[in-house]
Computed example of a mutant assay.
Amino acid sequence: MKLYDISQELFHGRVYPGDPAPEYERILKITEGAPCNLTKFNMGAHNATHLDAPYHFYENGITVEQIDLVRCVGPCTVISLSDYTLEELQKVLKVCNKRLLIKGKDTVTLEHAKLFNNYGILLVGVEGQSVGPEDAPIPVHLELLGKEVVLLEGLVLDEIVPGNYFLSAAPIKLGKCDGAPCRAILLDFDETATCNS
């Protein structure tokens, strides 16, 4: 078994334009005579590697602590969208795992999002800080979050070969929040596994 950390380091990770950047302050220091080191921090709910909850775009949508963790933990498939036409992608979606990670800079379009919903995808993960086109991400978010698809954003998949893995990407349990950071990891139980198409 091999384990891959597919998360960004929070304080040096990417920040979506307009979001607050995370920062920390050491409020107790052993070097200054304190009995321990203690840190406080401020951040946005969508910094670095994080999940979007439906409440991010739906006023009556579920919040982070209400997400069914089955959507965030379990078998997943890593693919590159650019490897497939829409017709070929449908064949992949028939046989792949219901948690789908998109490798590379491929853009999830509204057509992709509708296909994901048609095939019951539970989670969509991307390397970018937002699912969908950078200049118009809202329609893709609305399509997926409207079906309570978990959006896992800000992944690091450089070293990941497309194929089947086990994903653990549970969010921090932030009550009433629209998003939350997570430590996303992949487990490869069979390093020869590939996505069936």
Rank of each mutant, 00 (worst) to 15 (best):
I67T: 03
P17W: 02
K40H: 07
H12W: 00
E9D: 14
G61M: 07
A53I: 07
M1H: 11
H56P: 00
P20F: 04
L155P: 07
T39W: 13
R99E: 00
F116K: 01
P75Q: 07
F11N: 02
E87C: 04
T63V: 10
L155T: 06
N47V: 10
V131H: 01
Y58F: 15
G120L: 05
S82H: 11
P20T: 09
L38H: 10
E65Y: 11
H46A: 06
D5G: 02
F41A: 13
N117L: 09
V131F: 03
C195D: 09
V124H: 02
I172S: 11
P35S: 12
E159C: 10
L101P: 02
T49Y: 07
V108P: 12
E111Q: 14
N196R: 11
G175V: 06
C76F: 02
A180T: 04
L167E: 04
A193Q: 13
P35C: 08
S80A: 15
G132V: 06
G146F: 11
L38S: 12
I30T: 14
T77Q: 03
N164P: 01
K29T: 10
K91I: 13
E9F: 09
C177P: 00
D5P: 04
E111G: 03
V161R: 14
I121D: 00
G128P: 00
R26S: 09
E111C: 05
E191D: 15
D106G: 15
K91P: 04
K98G: 00
L69C: 09
L186V: 08
A48W: 03
F166M: 01
T85V: 09
